[in-house]
């Protein structure tokens, strides 16, 4: 499903990723871990096509992102849910509108958009806040809106960048249950985190990054 070959990414003189090789199979649940600045976010952004690698190749479902057209990349992104570390919510839109946005771009029927958006908000426990604006919510609630937007389109791949970074332990547990339920539905889930607790409590695959290199992989 996700295949990385000799991936390098530099930002000017700074090396973000160096010779990263990775294969994540369909339906797997993987954690990418490492200290701040290890390259976790860059790796997720490369998989999402938001960045271009300096060299190397990324294959998603057999499609090489280096050779993909602009339009095909846009269409591919509809199959990938991304939970951004900074949420990327629109402050002028309500919670409902923020989540519905991911379906509106696909041209779905309005009735279906309404139904799926409500389902998604229900899953993250925010159905009673659908008319609130992001700035009226706590950090944890905003995080959950971002997750609701990422899962509303039933993605084949779910990428999450520090999805529990703003949550207390109870909510972290709830969110992880949520990710597992999405995984159980067949989605491939890749979560970047620096939380040791999260990794200790899980039996999923773990990849450790440091200074842009993979130095350990654990697959249970």
């Amino acid at each position: 499903m996700i295949h990385l070959f000799h991936l390098y990414k530099n930002f000017g003189p700074n090396i973000a990723l160096s010779d990263v090789n990775l294969r994540v199979h369909e339906g797997e649940f993987v954690f990418i871990s490492g200290p701040s600045g290890a390259g976790k976010t860059t790796l997720l952004r490369l998989i999402f096509g938001a960045e271009r690698p300096t060299s190397g190749h990324i294959l998603i479902n057999g499609i090489n992102l280096n050779r993909i057209s602009r339009l095909k990349l846009d269409l591919l992104r509809r199959k990938i849910g991304f939970v951004f570390q900074d949420f990327k919510l629109l402050p002028a839109k309500t919670v409902f509108e923020n989540v519905a946005l991911a379906l509106e771009v696909t041209g779905e029927r309005r009735s279906l958009i309404r139904k799926k958006t409500r389902q998604s908000l229900k899953l993250v426990g925010l159905v009673d806040k659908e008319q609130a604006y992001p700035l009226e919510l706590s950090g944890g609630e905003q995080q959950r809106v971002a997750i609701a937007r990422a899962i509303v389109k039933d993605p084949l791949i779910l990428l999450a960048d520090e999805p529990t970074g703003n949550l207390d332990p109870d909510l972290t547990k709830d969110i992880m249950v949520l990710f597992k339920s999405i995984h159980m539905k067949g989605a491939t889930v890749v979560i970047a985190t620096h939380s040791r607790e999260l990794l200790e409590d899980t039996e999923q695959g773990k990849i450790f990054l440091n200074r842009g290199r993979i130095f350990e992989e654990k697959w249970d």
Binding site: L71, D74, R78, F82, K88
Partner: peptide, 9 residues
């Protein structure tokens, strides 16, 4: 954000 959730140009 629209582009990131898969909106075409």
């Amino acid at each position: 954000i629209l582009k990131l959730v898969g909106a075409t140009n």
